[in-house]
C-alpha cells in the first residue's frame, strides 16, 4: 500500500467549476514530489484535499490508512496529526514567540510540557533557528518566518510534509535555503514531501518527481522532471 493514494478523484465546486477531473496518483513513502501547473489548474485544490480542507466530490483519497474522502469533520484532527503543513503565508501567531509558535502545535494536541521542550528545540535546530527562539515573528525575515512554519510542521514528526507554495513570498536566495531544508528533511528523516509550486528554477534544479496538472487533468508524471518539458506537452 502506498502512503498516499488518489483514485479517480473529482472535485466539482458548487458553482459548477471542475477543479480536478479523474485524477489518479500514488505517492510512496520517502518521495519528494512537486505539483506544478498554471494558476487555476487545480493544484491548490488537490493539496487542500490532501489535508481535508476540501472533500473530493467523487473518488477516493487514502493517506496512511485514513480514508480522507469519507472523513467526518469532527475526525479531521486524526489525519492532521499525521501531516505537517507549510503555508505560503506562514500562518504564525504574531503574539507568540518562535518557541511558543512551535510549541503551540504540541500543546494543542495535549502533549506533556516536559516532553514538548526537547521536541521544539530539536525541530528549531533542524531548520537552523535554534538561536532565535525568543524572537517574535515580526522580528524575523520572511525566510526565517517560513522556517518557523516548517519547524512547526515537523515538530510532531509527521510522515508527510505538505507544502503549499512555501517559497511564493520569498526571494530566490531565501527560496534556495528553504528548499535545502526541505531536501534535508526528505533525505535524512525520510519525510515524504508534497510541494505545490510554480517556481521554475526550483523545480528544474531539484530534479525530483514532477506531477503537472492542467485544468484539473493530470498532464504528466515524470520521475526526474523539470518545469519546461511539461509546459510544452
Amino acid at each position: 500500500m502506498k502512503l498516499i493514494s488518489i483514485q479517480n478523484c473529482y472535485k466539482i465546486y458548487k458553482n459548477g467549476v471542475t477543479a480536478i477531473a479523474d485524477l489518479s496518483v500514488e505517492i510512496d513513502k520517502g518521495e519528494f514530489v512537486f505539483i506544478i501547473g498554471s494558476t487555476g489548474c487545480g493544484k491548490s485544490t488537490l493539496i487542500k484535499m490532501l489535508y481535508r480542507e476540501e472533500r473530493p466530490t467523487k473518488g477516493n483519497i487514502n493517506i496512511g490508512g485514513i480514508n480522507v474522502a469519507k472523513l467526518r469533520n469532527s475526525k479531521v484532527y486524526k489525519l492532521r496529526r499525521k501531516l505537517g503543513i507549510v503555508f505560503q503565508d506562514f500562518k504564525l501567531l504574531p503574539k507568540l514567540t518562535v518557541y511558543e509558535n512551535v510549541a503551540f502545535a504540541l500543546e494543542s494536541i495535549g502533549m506533556k510540557d516536559k516532553d514538548i521542550r526537547p521536541k521544539v528545540i530539536e525541530a528549531l535546530d533542524k531548520v537552523g533557528l535554534k538561536d532565535r527562539i525568543r524572537s517574535y515573528p515580526r522580528e524575523l525575515s520572511g525566510g526565517e518566518q517560513q522556517r518557523v512554519c516548517i519547524a512547526r510542521a515537523i515538530v510532531n514528526e509527521p510522515k508527510i510534509l505538505i507544502c503549499d507554495e512555501p517559497t511564493g513570498n520569498l526571494d530566490p536566495t531565501t527560496s534556495k535555503e528553504i528548499m535545502d531544508i526541505l531536501d534535508k528533511l526528505n533525505k535524512e528523516y525520510e519525510t515524504t514531501v508534497v510541494m505545490v509550486t510554480h517556481d521554475k528554477d526550483i523545480v528544474n534544479r531539484m530534479k525530483k518527481r514532477v506531477i503537472s496538472l492542467d485544468n484539473g487533468v493530470l498532464v504528466s508524471d515524470a520521475k526526474k522532471g523539470s518545469y519546461k518539458v511539461h509546459e510544452n506537452v
Partner: peptide, 11 residues
Amino acid sequence: IMRLVGTSNST
C-alpha cells in the same frame, strides 16, 4: 492553526 495542526474540536 489549531485545526490545521490536528487539535480535536472539543479541545
